[in-house]
Nucleic acid binder design. Structure first.
Lengths: 216, 216, 216, 216
DNA sequence: TATGAATGAGTATTCATTCAT
DNA sequence: CATGAATGAATACTCATTCAT
């Protein structure tokens, strides 16, 4: 959706603009994020932004897409590296740990995830969330299916409910340590990745019956 | 936190201001919601708002609190009227149905719930979410404890995980039918309360093992 | 100029309003000083101020007058207590020291002096300065005349120039220690009364020929 | 301190904005001077002012600096043109006359001088007065030193006291004819430059012993 | 293709004053 | 006589977007 001009830009400038935009939009969200600020901090002219993108929303959507893609690729890589010989529960724990570690190490990506998740306006949200969700599902769904076929998950588990559960838990785990009021019970707020691990264990253990093969 | 002036106002005006504010803040959120607009639509002078509240945040926080209180009271009332002689699963279904019906019938309250849930700014979020969470927990926690003691929930279920699950499911069910991108799997978006019921059933069924007493 | 209502007020309230007003107007000047703030901090209704004074300017003028009167009375008292058997130069030093000490001990009066001195608007200034000047002159002029007749001042000194000099030096000495940029040469800014004394000596010594009787 | 945009502006517009600002700030001072008014009267958009200056204080400070510089340059030129073969007293008279004439002919500069001199707020005053004082001193100090070395001033005169006297007399002479309550004794208020001259003579004569070489 | 000046409606908030109670 | 609610114009400042260069 960016103009052709954007893609003809040299990589350094493109990366700089993108990083500044992630910081600005990630910190303030779509409507409060300022194009003036982004242009200033990226060291480009205000007008140039409009040579690269037709308007603010297109710019925001592009940044969101880019971030979703990065998160997805990196997580795909990490998940592919995990041990699938272990039981499902251990694998799930590893996935959640990789996820929370990634989020801890990538504050800009995490902030953009929040900016998209916390967007109130439906017309903006719809532009932004759908592609993000596709990215997530393309990682989650095949994995769950594989585990199912391998017999790591109880046969009568509803795959849609499992996937929905994942779609709720992932942003929760990603953001609860950094945003107020998301988790008044387990107290993830302010915890380091290491300190989050016992909570992740507790969650997985509590949900075990949902997926666990009976009798194992 | 509002000024004494606010509470001395005649009820009609207070209600009018509150309703307009719910619509404005609920539709646009804290930062994009305009005090000018609220004053105009409520038919009062811009300056008057500042006789009632010291600043925008205090105003927003008040509206949130008020809405939380209303939701909580009404839900408490509805839940108290439910049949507790039935199994937990039936009761839970009833609760979720009451909840989604309430949300369908109260678009302003629902919108404010979203405005608070989708607030990105931590300093505003913290002002607003903590009290809301307290309200929710004061309804959820005692109910779960009672069911537990009554033996309606499996004895080894982790109460914190159950409560956290509820805290995730409630806003999900409330908002997913009205906000884009919240639910890419079960497709609640756009459904009427009646159409939401099968999805609720599916969710509860899928999660059954988490709470169900084995062998029942 | 205040209404009769003001004078019928009990002394405590009157004093409280006056003190708060001195602090507010003294700190912010006429135009930036806020009647809302004064009313709030004095614990009276906003409307009441307008029962006591017809408008803001009348209020400000009253406070200025009151302060001028207090300063004048106290300074008259202090000057009357000084030793007039000593040479004029010693007496003058004593007067300036009394003055700077009084100003150090009475920050509210000093601030109001500044508020009146620094007022830019002629229409307000004229209301406020003339009476203040009368107060000053009624202390300065008779003293100078007496010293002249007693032969403590050289006979050919121009009394108007002497008085004008006093009228410049008094606010300068009063305010230079507390306001930026008034004294870039002698560096009174920030000095305690004790630290101001050598500067006062220097000033008087430097100006000695203006008044000193030749040959003494 | 203005932005680069300001300096890239065409001279005509810059001069227009500056003149309007001098009139507004000079008439009403920093805090009461309105940026809205300046923009409207200069025929530019409100937002444009903020392209030129980051905020109101920076704008005000710039105008003050500019005015100080102009006054200083013009006065330096005039003083350099004076006859230094005459006695000091005659030279001093000429300086004061040039000064008061300049002020009579340049109401905008005079008004800004007053706006800076009458500013109550220390944080603004300090920004504005220090540079102004430097300008004054750079004219006054070398002149006095030169006269001293040439023997035109009595050798035992305290140069700091002389300079301080000048720093008090200059604004006094500049503003007393135009501002109420500055001069209740010599009655400069309302006088034309020609009418001010006898008063200047009187002042200089009255202060003669301070500088005059004894026996001349 | 990049620039950056210009715009004008928008923001939250403050103010002195009025006047019905 | 005291109260305090109401007012609406005022404030500095920000914004996404346009467009001539």
């Amino acid at each position: 959706m960016p103009t052709s001009t954007w893609f003809r830009l040299n990589v350094g400038k493109r990366e700089r603009v993108l990083e500044v935009a992630m910081r600005e939009f990630g910190g303030l969200g779509y409507s409060s994020g300022s194009l003036n600020t982004i242009a200033r901090e990226a060291g480009i002219a205000k007008g140039s932004l409009f040579q690269y993108f037709n308007d603010k929303l297109e710019f925001f959507a592009y940044v969101c897409d880019e971030v979703s893609r990065r998160i997805r690729e990196e997580m795909q890589r990490r998940i592919d590296a995990l041990d699938v010989a272990q039981p499902f529960e251990g694998w799930l724990f590893d996935v959640f740990c990789e996820w929370t570690e990634y989020m801890a190490e990538h504050p800009l990506e995490r902030a953009m995830l929040a900016a998209a998740d916390f967007e109130l306006d439906n017309s903006i949200r719809s532009v932004v969330r759908d592609t993000a969700n596709q990215h997530y599902l393309q990682v989650i769904s095949p994995s769950l299916r594989a585990w199912r076929e391998r017999g790591g998950i109880r046969g009568d588990a509803d795959p849609d409910v499992l996937a929905s559960l994942m779609m709720m838990l992932l942003p929760f785990l990603a953001l609860a340590p950094y945003y107020e009021g998301l988790d008044p019970i387990l107290n993830l707020r302010g915890r380091t990745p290491a300190e989050q691990r016992p909570v992740i264990r507790q969650l997985i253990a509590g949900l075990r019956p949902v997926y666990a093969v009976p009798g194992t």
